Amino acid sequence: MWIQLVTCWLWLFMNSAEGSRRGCGETLTASRGILTTPNFPGPFSVPLNCEWVIDAQHVWAPNTSIIVYLTQLFVYEGLTFTEYQLYGSDYKINPQIIHRVNESNISKVRWIQTFQSFLVIRLELITADSAHLRVLDNFLDVYGFNITYEISTEAVRPNSCTMMDCGFTGNCYDYYK
């Protein structure tokens, strides 16, 4: 438990070669990185329409997968995870929604995994008022998300850090090798 808490509070300062915390949507090819909503954990301008594309086609090894750890997820609508066999600006082959965040699963799902070459994470919000988690009856308003991804041949880490492990007020960046 102590290691997990220390891990949850670990701040990862990553250079662009490992993926960095940027704006709203981009194509990611690094083997690991962090995705955040603008101004996380603070409020952001709405409407918001973001699309992050995790591209694993450059990794050619058996059992390669894209794993997304839902480290700090405070938005409970408008967020979908769709896998694709191929994905481009003018073609999208074999789309399948593999997870849609909602009120009933926000604290139950720790990670998302796909063995396809592309994972598209889409956030569409018209308003943030009813879509973000409020802690202790509006004592602490937290908006958006900070999630960690990796492209790997390793197994999913079942004890990955989530907002429930770190406490709602902590900065939770999941540790990875």
Score class of each variant (00 low, 15 high):
N63I: 05
L79V: 09
L28F: 02
T127R: 04
L79Q: 07
Y175K: 05
Y149R: 05
P38Q: 12
D141C: 05
W11H: 07
A155G: 14
Y143C: 03
V75C: 02
C161P: 01
N39F: 11
T153M: 12
T71I: 02
L5P: 00
W52V: 01
F81A: 01
T37P: 00
C8H: 03
Q57G: 01
R134E: 13
W60N: 14
K92A: 12
K108D: 12
F168I: 00
W111K: 11
S31Q: 07
E26L: 06
F13N: 15
G19I: 05
S65I: 03
W2R: 14
Y175V: 11
S152Y: 14
R22H: 08
S107F: 15
R157Y: 15
L70S: 04
Q116N: 15
V75K: 00
T114Y: 06
E124W: 07
I106P: 04
A61N: 14
L10Q: 02
D137K: 07
T27A: 01
V135M: 02
R21S: 11
V75E: 00
L79N: 06
I112S: 08
A56H: 05
N171R: 10
V120Y: 08
A128I: 11
G78Y: 00
V75I: 08
Q4C: 09
H132E: 02
S152I: 13
Q4F: 08
F13E: 14
S130D: 10
E18M: 07
D129C: 00
F145A: 04
N105K: 09
H132L: 03
L123C: 02
N63C: 09
D137S: 10
H58N: 10
V135S: 01
L48K: 04
M164S: 13
G25I: 03
Q116F: 15
T114L: 06
I98W: 13
R22V: 14
R134F: 04
M163N: 09
D129M: 04
I97A: 12
T71G: 05
Q96H: 15
R134V: 11
I98D: 08
R157M: 15
V101K: 03
W11K: 08
C166Y: 08
R122I: 01
G170D: 01
I98K: 11
E83N: 11
E103N: 11
F115S: 14
R134D: 10
F44G: 02
C24Q: 07
E26G: 10
Y143F: 13
C172G: 02
H99Q: 11
I98C: 06
V109Q: 08
E51Q: 08
G167W: 01
F168R: 01
N138G: 00
F81E: 03
L136D: 11
G42K: 10
Y76S: 04
N94S: 15
D137E: 07
V156E: 06
G42R: 09
Q72D: 09
Q4R: 15
W60P: 00
S65A: 11
G144W: 00
I121F: 06
N63M: 11
L86I: 11
V135T: 05
C172P: 00
G88T: 09
F74H: 09
L28K: 12
G42N: 12
D141M: 09
Y84F: 15
T114A: 05
K92T: 14
L35E: 01
L35D: 01
S160R: 12
L35T: 04
V59S: 13
H99D: 04
S104H: 12
I106H: 10
L70T: 05
T7R: 14
N146H: 05
P158V: 04
G144M: 01
A61S: 13
H132S: 04
Y69G: 02
K177W: 14
